[in-house]
């Protein structure tokens, strides 16, 4: 249903372009859930926004294809794109405190989303909004509809945002770290709501996060991003059980649950390179313990053991994780 080939997004300036993400390939069937994982600044959010066509100048998609149900979203006019946005592809953002307009009532913000895409009566739109609020577990949705965003807690606001995303029963939802700003308990609730609804409605889901443990139970597929590129992609179970890329390996090893009690927490040394100052060849090379001379050439994304991998030195079986 969604097929992304060689997507490239850059900051376009007169002094030259700075690449944010490059060579992004994603494949998502209807109803499939994919986790898009990476550190801050790895380009996960930019990928999501690129698909939606929501980038602000000077950031622009400069290459590749975004095929959604066979149509290249990059070739659509603004008007055609708007008819897909919020309708067939919906997006949920990270900070629920700022995504809802503070001066408009919830019903206004929900009904306009319905009425933009479908000519239905106000009453019908209102009913659909009410049902959506009920679906995400907001108690007494009739009353809450006439409330303002500041009358909701953070978790409740994120539920409202999810309800808005669900209004048109989209084919795909892009969730950009929707639980990062929430308490752990609320996080779990939101996760289970989205998981349940995605399954019931057969919606595909791209879950952008920096938290591996969040996607572990949610996604069937995992794409790990580093410095604007996908470094490893495959089934979640495979990747978690046996990561091949040193970076994925490091990520998993850094999870506190994998450490022995009392021992020092593992970490990946160094920091993500800045987009303006990318290392030559493999971007992970300066932080990688198995890097050699060959890593000064950029590795390509290749099929290895039923997954895609961008590395010259995959982690060997039995290597310490």
């Amino acid at each position: 249903m969604l097929e992304i080939n060689g997507l490239k997004t850059e900051v376009v300036t007169e002094q030259g372009n700075v690449t944010l993400i490059d060579d992004i390939n994603l494949n998502l069937a209807a109803g499939e859930v994919m986790g898009l994982v990476g550190e801050s600044g790895s380009g996960k959010s930019v990928t999501g926004l690129s698909i939606m066509g929501l980038l602000d100048k000077p950031v622009q998609v400069t290459g590749g294809q975004i095929l959604f149900k066979g149509r290249d979203l990059r070739k659509l006019s603004q008007k055609e794109l708007r008819s897909i946005r919020g309708n067939r592809i919906a997006m949920i953002f990270q900070d629920p405190m700022s995504t809802l307009n503070p001066v408009l009532r919830i019903d206004t913000q929900m009904m306009e989303a319905v009425r933009t895409h479908e000519s239905v009566s106000k009453q019908a739109a209102w009913e659909r909004a009410r049902d959506a609020l009920g679906m995400v577990g907001i108690p007494s949705p009739e009353e809450r509809l006439s409330a303002y965003p500041h009358q909701f807690s953070g978790g409740m606001r994120q539920r409202v945002a999810i309800a808005i995303a669900l209004l048109m029963s989209p084919d795909l939802i892009i969730a950009d770290e929707p639980t990062t700003a929430l308490d752990v308990t609320i996080q779990a609730q939101i996760l289970s709501i989205v998981q349940k609804l995605a399954r019931e409605k057969g919606m595909a889901l791209i879950w952008v996060t920096h938290d591996l443990s969040v996607v572990a139970g949610l996604a069937e597929k995992l794409s790990v991003m580093y410095a604007g590129r996908i470094v490893e992609q495959g089934s979640t179970a495979d990747l978690l059980r046996r990561p091949l890329h040193p970076y994925t390996n490091g990520l998993i090893a850094s999870l506190p649950a994998h450490n022995e009690r009392g021992s020092r927490l593992k970490q990946i040394s160094g920091t993500t390179p800045s987009v303006a100052n990318m290392p030559k060849g493999c971007a992970f090379r300066p932080r990688c313990s198995s890097a050699t001379e060959i890593c000064f050439d950029p590795p390509a994304l290749e099929a290895v053991e039923g997954r895609l991998l961008r590395c010259f030195h995959p982690v060997m079986e039995g290597a310490p994780s």
């Binding site: 939606m52 929501l54 708007r82 008819s83 897909i84 946005r85 919020g86 309708n87 919906a90 997006m91 953002f93 900070d95 700022s98 995504t99 809802l100 307009n101 503070p102 408009l104 206004t108 306009e112 989303a113 933009t116 895409h117 945002a161 808005i164």
Partner: peptide, 20 residues
């Protein structure tokens, strides 16, 4: 963010500007 979200809902620029 709320304008970005409004755009993600597929609202027209006119509606975003004149209401949101």
């Amino acid at each position: 963010e709320y304008v970005r979200f409004a755009r993600a809902k597929g609202l027209s620029p006119r509606r975003i500007l004149s209401v949101h």
